[in-house]
Computed example of a mutant assay.
Amino acid sequence: MRIVADENIPLVNECFGDLGEIIRLPGRNMTNEDLQGADALLVRSVTQVNAELLQGTPVRFVGTCTIGIDHLDTAYFDNQGITWVSAPGSNANSVVEYVYAALAHLNVDWKGKRVGIIGCGNVGGRLYRRLKAQGVECRVYDPFLSTEQIPELTSLTDVLGSDIVCMHTPLTRSGPHPSVHLLGAEQLKQLKPGAVLLNAGRGPVIDNQALLNHLESGADLKVVLDVWEPEPDISRPLLEKVALGSPHIAGYSYDGKMQGTFMIYEALCRHLGRTPEKDLSALRPSVADPQRHWAGGEPWPAIQRLVPQVYDITEDDRQLRELAERADRGEADFAKGFDRLRKEYPKRREFGNYRVTGDYSEEARVRLEALGFRVK
């Protein structure tokens, strides 16, 4: 069996090595010729997998180690009898921690704020439950859910009136509730002054040109963008205007990537009629220095000091802006650099790998656990 895999997927050899020959290639540059003789294809979100890529190849299994599937032509797969799978929820925790890190850097304590969540699936749902555990007031817009599932379900207009608006919806262009340009010029005007708008779902869910126009008009809005329209050659004027920008890496924790790989490994085993023999806990490397100290005092300032010790989001922002500056001087190709930042992204480990010690109150303990840290 021959397996072609995106070179950025971790633990590929460890998980799939016993199943066949593995060929690792750059995900964005895969061609039909690369797949001649391949039985299975493993990708991430940068590879557009469609008839053009697969036609005339023996590929019978496509697995994306990501939660999103807008890069997959699933109708074509179904028509051709090609098994396809994704990894829903694999990086949900990573994205939630990205939200926490962004808000901590912006000094916006979600406790005492009203948080609006657009899209309450694996990622938005986890964020919702974590915030509710801390007593945070939430409002949710998701036309595919009911109030029985989410009591705080409401209209998009109501959600846009929140202090913090987090977007975690997939990208859809058809159906009863398409998400493409869900936020356009009119919706952006509904955001309250001083609000935070964070998109860690898919770039085209916000009309990026309308957002740039809105910010250039002097809107009082803190914007955090991990996803853009289009990628990888994003709007650099928009990057200049946002409070934090990153190269589509919110879900790029090493733990989330490993979970995604393992989910696809289990799916390929099912496809082949084999029993999975690997154990992710045995494959996952431990953290060299897993202990962090609680500095004491009021919870919020202590959280602001603690979070960057594990994940410093400002480094992602710095590297993207530095790339833009070099591209403006003609010293770098921005699109290639954007992909390189993703390819060479450091092994960010999730909060759950760290134990927080020290003297903390019951309120602090609840918040630390909701953040995902281990406590005594």
Rank of each mutant, 00 (worst) to 15 (best):
H168M: 11
T57L: 12
K347N: 14
R274Y: 13
A219F: 07
K347S: 11
K189V: 08
I313P: 06
D339F: 07
G119A: 04
V123F: 06
R340G: 03
E322S: 11
T157L: 08
R139H: 08
G203T: 10
N8D: 12
N213Q: 15
D163Y: 07
S86E: 05
E315L: 13
L183R: 00
Q304L: 05
R24P: 07
E52Y: 13
R284K: 12
L341T: 01
P285A: 05
S45D: 10
V115D: 02
M167G: 05
L368I: 09
G63M: 02
I303E: 12
L198T: 00
H177Y: 14
N13F: 10
Q149H: 12
H168L: 09
G27Q: 00
I264N: 11
K336G: 10
Y141N: 04
L191S: 03
D316T: 04
R202D: 00
A87I: 08
E322W: 12
M258A: 14
V99K: 01
R139S: 11
V96T: 13
L106P: 04
F351L: 08
V85R: 15
T261R: 01
V307R: 07
A200W: 11
V99D: 00
L156S: 08
T74S: 15
R340D: 13
H293V: 10
S179W: 01
V307T: 03
A210W: 00
E344Y: 09
G37R: 01
M1E: 10
A288P: 01
E52L: 09
E137F: 07
H105F: 15
E331I: 07
T172A: 06
L42Y: 02
E315Y: 14
D70Y: 11
L272S: 08
N353L: 09
F334H: 04
A101Y: 09
A92M: 10
P247W: 02
N91A: 06
N107Y: 11
C138V: 14
E322T: 11
W228R: 04
D158P: 11
M1N: 13
A101C: 07
L19W: 07
S281N: 12
T64M: 02
L323N: 05
E315I: 12
Q291A: 12
R367L: 15
W294N: 03
